[in-house]
Design a protein around this nucleic acid. Structure first.
Lengths: 332, 332
DNA sequence: TTCCCCTATGGTATCGATTACATATTGCTA
DNA sequence: TAGCAATATGTAATCGATACCATAGGGGAA
């Protein structure tokens, strides 16, 4: 690929002048500028980022760590972050860690050698030790949906406890008294907090879950099994701590011959697109996923820019999306 | 961040020796090696990729262009590519172009300045002119699910025509004679080919679609509308050219009081996770999405390595996933 | 006319890592 | 014991772009 030297030669001038044209710095006569710009256009020349960074420029690179973008929730989150960061002038390495600590460590080493300006780490609850090198080099880290025990410079988390309360309260308000809860993965802080919120709201009404089924893997098949087990306790309503859990429950209930919502109410959490695809359409608590991503991008940008003000702009509220899977229980 | 010079100073030796330790090249005494490795570990030093690339190394960077990773299909595809590429030693820029030509051009310029070793372009049917600069610089391009009119060095496309035939044939075999087709986006080559396949299979049985509704936007809402229109023709079966289209059709049929599959059979294409989430579970043609991604990664790797053999390893076959939305038509 | 400043351009050190080359110390063999 | 190969380490050029410095012509003010 052509270098600035090539351009200088072709335009019969010096590298310094080409650089001045490229950066609109210093003095360049109109004639020279025109000639240089012409040869640049002809050769499709693009200055090397590597050389610029080496010379002392900012790398404009950021690393994004998340469990896996083939999971809808993270796909949406990653997309929102990447777009926001690109608009701010950054390029992103989107990395799926599969929650593996080894994988995460390899990506962190890569970030270091690529001299990223910052990192966003979403979810994935594996140990945070791999972040130590980043921290040591003063690279800002923004955590999303995850606490990073002192490693993160900033962290963006919605109120999962409140989310849990909202799910439970909605069912209580409809008149339900026998409520089951299922969800996964149990090692996730977010899941634990939602569960705590559910318990708290139920307790406030003198209730407790008639069944709690927490799994390790967050997928459809396991959710189906968890739901089947929970339904053995004949609840009139079931809380899925995620939409996937709730969708698994819809299938389990369906296969048991239960009608939704007449025989069983179900509520989920997240409001991923699939929630509106199932029939009956899933009632759920909507998380502002894209907003979360954009916020993370902007906060990281401010940290990289060295802007100290951590102005805590509030995230939009969680909202109940009432669809077709919840209704009052049938009279006993 | 520490540089090789820093390490050399700390270890009381020269940059050349540190480099030798880093690359296991030349002669280094056990003593020196130990000392250098110790200081490297202490400082969490990682050699700068920028300097290495500048010096003449490969960049190990690849660009991935696709419409948007918040669409499940592309999220899965991107994930498969990124993982395969990472295992091959590459880092990926996953870029969502939103099918915008301007966006695509900006990303291409970025690829050039980052000196990517290759590019994978998935779908997005916008003009291919932006690829000219890449081509001019001899950067290999692999197209996935898209023809790139002479720009791509290689291209990985499944047999959409066959897929279309399979959908139609399945319904014909069940005894359906009045079949409608819906889908989007109509400007997509893949969609057009599937449609051609559907028409061909129907024609072979002396049939033709009772209704064809093609839309410009590929989302749930538009699919619902297309399906509503198609259903006005009272087909006994409906073909969704994508799963999203088919899912929209399920909802439209449901809202019209039609039972699936008793009153209406529906078949989709892709087999994204949501296809198994809807109730009734969607019968569909499964596309080997992950395999597509891995193949693209490996082909690009071979092209970058300069390996001329384009050994056309066959993609796995399309398969009919028979679930609960298709059945013989009810006797008239 | 002399001095100074603005305009215009070129030369070159620098960033971090690699590598060809130079230098130096061994240890063997002839 | 001279001489050469193998081992061990350092010096410096290089990659592409930037920016500081030097050089030089032109124009206006004193």
């Amino acid at each position: 690929m052509a270098s600035i030297k090539t351009i200088a030669k072709l335009a019969q001038t010096s590298v310094a002048s080409v650089s001045r044209v490229l950066n609109n710095s210093g003095y360049v006569s109109a004639d020279l500028r025109a000639k240089v710009e012409a040869t640049i256009a002809q050769t499709n020349y693009q200055p090397s980022s590597d050389a610029r960074v080496l010379r002392g420029g900012k790398s404009n690179l950021v690393g994004i760590l998340l469990p896996s973008i083939d999971v809808q929730f993270f796909g949406i989150l990653a997309h929102a972050m990447e777009q926001a960061l690109f608009d701010l002038g950054y390029q992103s390495f989107i990395c799926s860690t599969a929650e593996s600590a080894a994988h995460e460590a390899r990506y962190v080493a890569m970030f270091l050698s690529r001299r990223v300006g910052g990192v966003i780490a979403a979810s994935a609850e594996a140990g945070a030790a791999h972040f130590a090198p980043l921290r040591a080099h003063g690279i800002p880290i923004v955590a999303v949906d995850r606490d990073l025990h002192g490693y993160a410079s900033d962290s963006i988390v919605i109120d999962h406890d409140l989310g849990g309360r909202m799910m439970a309260q909605h069912l209580i308000d409809l008149g339900h008294r026998t409520i089951a809860v299922i969800g996964a993965p149990l090692h996730s802080q977010s899941i634990q907090r939602r569960l705590a919120g559910v318990r708290a709201a139920l307790a406030q009404s003198g209730l407790q879950p008639v069944s709690e089924q927490l799994g390790t893997t967050h997928d459809f098949a396991q959710s189906y099994d968890l739901a089947s087990r929970a339904l053995a306790n004949r609840p009139s309503a079931l809380i899925g701590l995620t939409d996937i859990a709730a969708i698994g429950a819809i299938h389990a209930a369906h296969d048991l011959g239960l009608r939704i919502p007449q025989d069983l109410s179900i509520i989920g959490f997240d409001d991923i697109p699939s929630a509106a695809f199932v029939l009956p359409r899933l009632t759920t608590i909507a998380q502002p996923i894209r907003h979360l991503g954009r916020s993370a991008a902007h906060r990281l940008h401010r940290l990289i820019a060295g802007d100290p003000q951590t102005l805590e702009e509030a995230l939009p509220a969680l909202t109940l999306i009432q669809r077709d899977t919840t209704a009052p229980p049938k009279p006993a």
